[in-house]
Design a protein around this nucleic acid. Sequence first.
RNA 1: GGCGAGGUAGCUCAGUUGGCAGAGCGGGGGACUCAUAAGCCCUAGGUCGUGGGUUCAAGUCCCACCCUCGCCA
Length: 591
Amino acid sequence: MTEKILVEIAWPYASASIHVGNITGSHLPADIYARYHRLKGNDVVMVSGSDSHGTPVTVKADAEGTTPLEVSKKYHQEFVELFQKLGIHYDQYTTTHTENHFKVAQSFFLALKENGFLYEETQKQWYSEKADRFLPDRYVEGTCYICGAEGARGDQCDHCGSMLDSTLLKDPISKMDGSTPVLKETTHFFLDLSKLEDQVVSFLESKQEFWRANVVKQSLGWIKAKGLLGRPITRDLEWGIPVPVEGWDGKCMYVWFEAVIGYLSATIEWDKLGDENAKWEDFWLNPDAKASHFIGKDNIPFHAIMWPAQLLGAGETFCKIFGEGQGKLTLPYDVPANEFMNMEDRKISGSKNWGVWGLDFLSRYDPDPLRFYLTINMPETRDSNWDWDDFVRRNNDDLVATWGNLANRVLSFTHKKWDGIIPEPGQLSEADNALLDSIEKGFDTVGNLIEEVKLRAALSEAMRLASEVNKYLDDTAPWTLVKTDPQAAATTVYVAIKAIDSLKTMLSPFLPFTSEKLNSYLRAGQPLFGEQYTQTVQDNLGEHTVLRYKATGTGQWKPSDLKGGIAFQKPEPLYKKLEKEVAEEERARLN
RNA sequence: GGCGAGGUAGCUCAGUUGGCAGAGCGGGGGACUCAUAAGCCCUAGGUCGUGGGUUCAAGUCCCACCCUCGCCA
């Protein structure tokens, strides 16, 4: 049965470069999952985009003396370039600053309003008369009213660790312009989460056996602690999506509320730009569709509590207001949140330049070694650590030695002794069949692990199978056999090539570039995967670039059916060994 | 402070319902030579964060504490 698989990745803020922690946290696991399902023949749509709105973008623009639009466009272009070079195959990577997203988000807002899940409330907030605007809590500094420490932020005091009520902060100063802010009343829309609490709780309870423990337990624990309270969904901002209600000029939707709606709007944009087979309704109004959110642990409450609440609240009314489709919006199938990756035992930090940035890495190294290291070290159950010595070691001792060398030794040997033609096998021995059976079972084992998003284990299992082929070769020793029994040696080599051809498929979600290269040796003109391309979209807000995917791949998640007698080109090594000194050089780049 | 996750071999991590502590890599030794001095075989190693408790039996269950990370509308 063909499944509808929606793969949704947390939207990166268009105000800072993407580092290895971001990649291993969400984009990479999502891509591996999506590629696997594409090979399985399922209908996959993988969506995300740049979060163009929000305070970080505005702050960056102020700092650089430019506009939020320019800042967001610059980072968006950078992200699109990175995903292409790293092979993150988005069907639709867009931005939140599009006419389409505005319309979807506003319809969503109005659906919640019509269904009675919004209310208005007036609160006091710091206001800079100098800049003529309200200040986000974390951009107000002052003296902590609990411990008396200076330099406390409006939302938290780093000295005593307390969460603060920003309006009680003493001697406040605006971090944006250095002025002394004043408290001013402002009215906002709130999402009435208390009315949705019961539905969210039963939704989470239904996922208890299936979702990762940290996701379910943290979410249920949060709700149990205080209950779900109303939460503001609008802010006093110029830059963002206007509140679609008369008399609300100068107010925009809060990004936490608006950005997650991007999953829906990106799918709708994908539909509009695609052919008649591309239907957003198949993924959003279909209870059997499987929608998974790939996020970091900091984002759990927004995807496991807020977003389900938003979807439940909008319900069938969204379609009515939006004017397309009919039915209830589908709730998430899974939220496989990852923990964090540290850099050389310290937290990754953009401002301290402590990290490895995706594009910078790819200017010196190939994408697959990065994907390999980030997968085998993925922070699935606890924080993990990027260590340059470990990177070099994993590259040389695992990737090159176990898998790269296996492919190279077999293909080189065959090319030398059989003139570049895969030999015809004779009768298969017990050992031959045992190896091929083992590999065949691997498709189920590895596939199931990927479906459960246990990607470290999945990759380890595939590597273990590669190791099994190495053992098989040493046991059968075709380089000796070829001197005494050429037909037996031919059979052995054929079996080994078939095993490698299968492993290439099994590893291709993880290592797409080198798998494609290996595949091209054996099946010229039959690529495993499709192609990425960019497209410029014009609308009332200007133009934006989207990254899209053309599904022209021929790869299938099943054992090799390669026949003897096929000519193949002389192989080149798939990976490079790295000098040990690389680790020292790279560490010197930090900070 | 509250909630959640994590703490197991030198390193990175597995350990399902309690039942003789596991893997990969690194270290030590060996046979081979197709291969990127890669691969294969053998081997060494651990007070399972700490302290109590339950049990015939605890990495696993209970209590307290320590450390790391995240969240707290």
